[in-house]
Design a protein around this nucleic acid. Structure first.
Lengths: 214, 214
DNA sequence: TCCATCCAGATTATAGATAGTTTTCTTGTC
DNA sequence: GACAAGAAAACTATCTATAATCTGGATGGA
């Protein structure tokens, strides 16, 4: 069949650039010039501009009217802000998702936690961590809320990759298991409390070295 | 003087379309066709497409890859979702803003409440209401949070204008004054509790008539 | 005979490329 | 340090291609 992808080029560019920004391959504060990006992707700058708007909405770049776009910074303040927003919104989502959680979803979440334990690098751990959160939150059936949470998780991942690569994993698996245990017992209050603390833990920043603002 | 605005056309189009959608001049569910909009504004379709991306980020329209964009619906579920998100985020913002609130800010907020009392139509009331919230929240100095809240308030206004035009105003001024009183006394817990209830009250929907989904 | 389904052509709309204009930044000169 | 000329980049318009939708009509079945 070899059906043409039918995915607009703008979407592809925005995905690719988002990945690079999150991975830290594009430095914070650096300018993105539409012609250069266009040349690199072998397209014109028109879809590039649309991709920029998308990244702007995700909070990965900021744009000034006639002066181009630049990658957002990764300061400690921004990190805390995002962590607190995540905590507030994920608690809300979990509160609505809890009544619709099934045994099989909880089992899948358990498996995601184990995958996080087995993860050898940050990327794999982050993916497992995000899968865990998505699993227990998406049954809330609130699409706008889930989209916001997803954008915030992307931004969180950016901090994770940018700053410190050592101290992931250890306490999170405990938190994940505590959340699952509370959910299995129907103790929603305990589950949301642990979730809030767990998310904000990420926002506490590095214990030893500063967050490598490039 | 008379400096050319230097505001990109895309920004102007997105503002104008957002106003119309919020005001209910463009029906929920109707399609927006880029070259029609372009003809109306006397431009090409390129800035129109960028405006669409902006509206999509604000949650006013939804876009399918090669099938165009259409105005989001205004169901009761979406309304509740937005109200709950607002409650969660505005409480967070107030918690961080409270330490930085000054006497003059509270006085201005009081004045905004009075302006809401005096408002003769929904538009004026909505503007005063939004000014009140912005005043007491913006000292939190969390730009990303404030942007999210602003988008949610825009969506709220849409429901307000779309569905029912009778029952605004009455209880809200009481809530606003209760929030201000609690803030003046330094009772942050009471202030956030009233704020959360107050915001979710909007999400309760019309008491008598259904929300006029067009 | 009437109705539903499906297909081909025409029409419409989205998406992207190319080219030109305007604004901003840079560099060289006084 | 200020200013002007040049370069670079953002922004928009026009044109083109590709995908989706709509129309009419044919076919098959009850």
């Amino acid at each position: 069949m070899s059906r043409a992808p039918a995915e607009p080029i703008a979407a592809r560019i925005s995905r690719e650039l988002a990945d690079r920004i999150v991975a830290g391959q594009i430095a914070a504060g650096s300018r993105l010039r539409q012609d250069h990006v266009a040349v690199e992707f072998g397209t014109s700058h028109v879809p590039v501009r649309e991709a920029f708007r998308r990244l702007e909405a995700q909070g990965l770049v900021e744009s000034e009217p006639r002066r181009g776009v630049r990658v957002c910074g990764v300061s400690l303040d921004e990190m805390r802000e995002i962590a607190e927003m995540r905590a507030a919104l994920e608690v809300l989502a979990l509160r609505h998702a809890a009544p619709h959680l099934t045994q099989s979803i909880l089992d899948e979440a358990e498996e995601a936690t184990r995958a996080g334990d087995r993860a050898g690098d940050v990327q794999a751990w982050e993916e497992a961590n995000r899968r865990f959160h998505r699993l227990i939150l998406s049954p809330c059936a609130m699409p706008r809320l889930l989209r916001s949470i997803d954008d915030l998780q992307t931004a969180s991942a950016r901090f994770l990759f940018a700053g410190w690569r050592a101290e992931w994993e250890t306490p999170t698996d405990r938190d994940h298991r505590a959340i699952l245990a509370a959910l299995r017992e129907g103790d929603l209050a305990a589950a949301t409390a642990v979730l809030a603390r767990h998310v904000q833990w990420i926002g506490q920043g590095p214990k030893r070295r500063p967050p490598l603002v490039r």
